[in-house]
Computed example of a mutant assay.
Amino acid sequence: MRLNYRKDGIFKILQMTDTHIGNMPFHADDEKTFDLVRRAIHKLDVDLIIHTGDIIWSEGVKDADIVFKKFIEIFNESDIPVAITFGNHDTEEIITRSDLRQLFDQTVKNKAEKVDIAIFDDRENYVIPIYDASNTEIQNALFVLDSGAASPLPLSEYDWNQPEQVEWFRKTAHTYLKGDHVKRHLVFQHIPLPEYWQATDKILAGVNKETNERISSPTINTGLFANMLLNTEIWGMFVGHDHDNNFDGLFNDIHLVYGNVSGYQTYGELTRGVRIIELNQHTQDIKTYTVTNDEL
């Protein structure tokens, strides 16, 4: 589905993350997650839903494909376009990312239009263009990257953006430049970049309450943030992964933001919820805030 601003010049994105749906029959906490997701979809007035990974548990989960399908069928209860990427827990055993992408394509009726698609080692990267209210010109580009799963080397616990992905981002993002240095484009993935550590020094909103590693990023830095910075028109990045973080931090004038953990069947003390990202075509402002389960 091609996306465009409303007539009033507003476009709203709902980010959910880390739902961690597990084995069937579903645990009571999974049922609470289903309920939260349904109420967010039906009560929040948004134009796009993006899930930034760890949609399911896959390790030790029988019939992970059926679990995944049952969760994403919820999206068919509304007409809101949907996009996803994957986290470190989605494909830990037999099921693959290509398996899940195929299930998503076959199951979800209203999929956001994806362009500039590139797949590296079964990790899909793509762009979602958002057009103006007249549906003629691209105003914003959403870059969605698959940040991987476990580290392939004994250097850190989690994977990093592959150099091929960073080069894809550099080249692709350049084609969306308007040349006015207005920060308008957004990046979405699951695992935070190492620069999220520096963003904790300037938290604009939200909390940083992880008790072990405050930021669970890879130790290898392959330069994605540097390319975001050099692009000059990237407003910020949105991730998941760390369930006790939901902050909006600023580093070198780029927002590094966590979604709010949405799933109950996983660790974390934060009140479950979602994040809203609101774009304004007229002012070119971008604002973001969380909506908790208690507020739905």
Rank of each mutant, 00 (worst) to 15 (best):
Y131H: 13
A133F: 10
T136M: 09
T136D: 01
E137Y: 09
I138L: 06
I138T: 12
Q139S: 11
Q139E: 09
N140Y: 07
N140C: 02
L142T: 11
L142M: 14
F143N: 06
L145A: 09
G148R: 09
A149S: 12
A149L: 01
A150W: 12
S151A: 09
S151Q: 10
S151V: 11
P152Y: 07
L153V: 13
L153F: 14
L153S: 11
P154H: 07
P154S: 10
P154M: 03
L155F: 05
E157Y: 08
D159L: 09
W160M: 06
N161P: 05
Q162N: 05
Q162E: 09
Q162A: 04
Q162C: 02
Q162R: 14
P163Y: 04
E164M: 05
Q165A: 06
Q165Y: 00
V166S: 01
V166Q: 04
W168N: 02
W168C: 00
F169I: 11
F169C: 05
R170K: 11
K171G: 00
K171H: 05
K171T: 06
T172C: 00
A173R: 07
H174W: 06
H174R: 10
T175M: 01
L177K: 15
K178V: 13
G179Q: 15
G179V: 15
D180S: 05
D180R: 08
D180Y: 03
H181Q: 15
K183V: 15
K183H: 14
R184D: 14
R184K: 15
